Amino acid sequence: MSSDVVELILADHRKFEDLFRELRSSEGDRRTALGDLSALLVAHAQAEETEVYPTLRKSSQVDDEEVEHGAEEHAEGHEALLDLLEVDEPGGDSWDEKLEQLSETITHHLDEEERTILNDARATVTQQRRDELGEAFLRSRQHYLDKDCGRIEYVRELVRESQS
């Protein structure tokens, strides 16, 4: 596996898409898929915000506004994730509605991040630096996964913090 931060982030993005397909399917364990999505989504966003975005912002090689916008979209994603986590039963109308809201929010963010921040990073940040950032991203993401960051209580706290 590559240690290039851009490739690692893109791999997570494809995993999110796979998990959304699982969540839409009436076959399989939707609660398990939601737990997997919640953990990876939160850990991914936290790692980007603690390791990747600050470094890209400092380097002045990636647009500051895009980095700030990416962090704002993480907060929106956490709110939509919390809404879905609070639905009692997978498969009902409320589940479908909240799942689509989350999917649209995340898909929008992934598209923008890939077209702006990641393309800029690929074009302007050296391979060595992207590899260093990738290693830091993986360590940070694992740290959050180890904290069980996908729990509803953890997501609630993230939403509270972003609203204050």
Rank of each mutant, 00 (worst) to 15 (best):
S2D: 12
V5Y: 00
V6M: 02
E7P: 02
H13V: 09
H13A: 07
K15W: 10
F16M: 11
E17L: 15
L19C: 04
L19I: 10
F20G: 08
R21M: 11
L23C: 06
R24M: 12
E27T: 12
G28T: 09
D29R: 03
R30Q: 15
R31E: 13
T32M: 10
A33M: 12
L34W: 02
D36W: 12
L37K: 04
A39S: 15
A43H: 02
A43L: 00
A47H: 07
E49L: 01
T50Q: 13
E51I: 01
P54Q: 03
T55R: 15
L56C: 05
R57W: 07
Q61G: 13
D63M: 07
D64H: 07
E65M: 09
V67T: 00
E68P: 00
E68M: 09
H69Q: 11
E72D: 13
E73S: 10
G77S: 09
G77D: 04
H78I: 03
E79R: 13
E79A: 10
L81I: 10
L82D: 01
L82R: 03
D83F: 09
V87M: 02
E89T: 14
G92V: 11
G92F: 06
D93V: 14
W95N: 02
E97I: 09
E97A: 13
E97Y: 11
E97V: 06
K98L: 03
L99I: 06
E100V: 10
E100T: 11
Q101H: 08
L102S: 05
L102D: 03
I106L: 13
H108I: 06
H108P: 06
L110E: 05
L110H: 10
R115S: 14
L118Y: 07
L118C: 03
L118M: 06
L118G: 00
N119T: 12
T124K: 12
Q127Y: 06
R130P: 04
E135L: 06
L138R: 14
L138T: 14
R141A: 08
R141E: 07
Y144V: 05
Y144A: 06
Y144R: 05
L145S: 04
D148Q: 14
E153H: 04
Y154F: 14
L158T: 05
E161P: 00
S162V: 00
